[in-house]
């Protein structure tokens, strides 16, 4: 591309093209002083961040820094782990996600999730997509719902002739797009992605990343990733987490820095962020 012929690493930072500031944020989630406990162990301590509407927010950091734990608070997935409990506040469109009146099942219908390992149900492709609408009592032409979800997930053309085949006959990358389609089929507001490409090859990864760019027109996306290039390529904002040992010798996940992706990757304000993104740590 470049006429000068300098080999530039393929790190396309999406941030500068669409400059935004924290203040202009239209928040979907507002996290205040969030701590997450597993039993007595405080896995994550004191997180403050905001997730913007129709943006892609990346959460990066070394293993054990609590980024997945925080992600799983957004759809109350941690409720399923015995002994897990969140302290602090997460507002979802001004409604306290952990309020007494909140039904976690309703939360998960609005806030979908895609997991690290593709986890299609051992059913047909069609039934995988139709599962969510069925269990949520969504009325309408199921064939259309399935086609629309698969089209949005850029999978329709590849599977339209074998829609009744078992989903496990698909490749890993296709399975992951199927899982994204499955999440889309219940028409959520937010899609959470927990390292969605870590089990995929580079080509499948590229497809998922392209898909995320498409989806961000309609959905708010929060992605946890180990891959810094991925965060840089796809996200508008990046949260950098790390694990720190407190005075009592206990490790806690902490949010170090949260800013526009371009700023995090070019001009981070914290030394720890800089060390991490330049590869000196983690």
């Amino acid at each position: 591309m470049s006429e000068i012929g300098i080999s530039v690493p393929n790190v396309n930072v999406r941030g500068p093209e669409v400059p935004r500031t924290i203040e202009a944020l239209d928040p979907v989630f507002t996290v205040s002083n969030l701590s997450v406990f597993y039993g007595d162990y405080e896995a994550v301590r004191g997180v403050d961040m905001t997730i913007g509407n129709r943006e892609i927010t990346a959460m990066i950091g070394p293993s054990g820094c609590g980024k997945s734990t925080v992600l799983r608070c957004f759809n109350r997935m941690n409720d399923l782990i015995p002994g897990a409990r969140a302290v602090g506040e997460i507002l979802y469109h001004d409604e306290n996600l952990y309020g007494d009146h909140v039904d976690p099942i309703e939360v998960r219908r609005r806030i979908g999730m895609v997991f690290q390992k593709p986890n299609p149900f051992p059913k047909s492709i069609y039934d995988n997509i139709a599962y969510g609408p069925r269990v949520n009592g969504i009325k309408g032409n199921m064939d259309e719902i399935v086609e629309e979800a698969l089209t949005k997930a850029a999978l329709w053309d590849e599977v339209k002739d074998k829609i009744k085949q078992n989903a496990l006959s698909l490749s890993g990358g296709q399975q992951q797009r199927l899982c994204i389609a499955r999440a889309i089929a219940v028409k959520p507001d937010v899609i959470l992605m927990d390292e969605p490409c870590s089990a995929l090859d580079p080509i499948a990864t590229t497809k998922i990343e392209d898909l995320m760019q498409e989806l961000t027109r309609d959905y708010t996306i929060v992605i946890v990733t180990h891959n810094m290039q991925q965060a840089a390529r796809v996200s508008d904002r990046t949260a950098f987490f790390t694990a720190e040992v407190d005075g009592a010798g206990v490790r806690h996940g902490r949010l170090v820095e949260f800013d526009e992706t371009s700023r995090i990757f070019t001009n981070p304000s914290d030394k720890r962020t800089e060390d991490y993104i330049t590869g000196r740590f983690g």
Binding site: N75, M77, L80, I105, E106, R108, R109, G112, M113, F115, K117, N119, P120, F121, P122, Y131, G132, V135, N136, C179, R182, A183, V186
Partner: peptide, 18 residues
Amino acid sequence: VPNGLREGSYALGASKML
């Protein structure tokens, strides 16, 4: 049955019974 299947179902807003 792998736990991932359960999580996939819960994440779509399915109850424990379903």
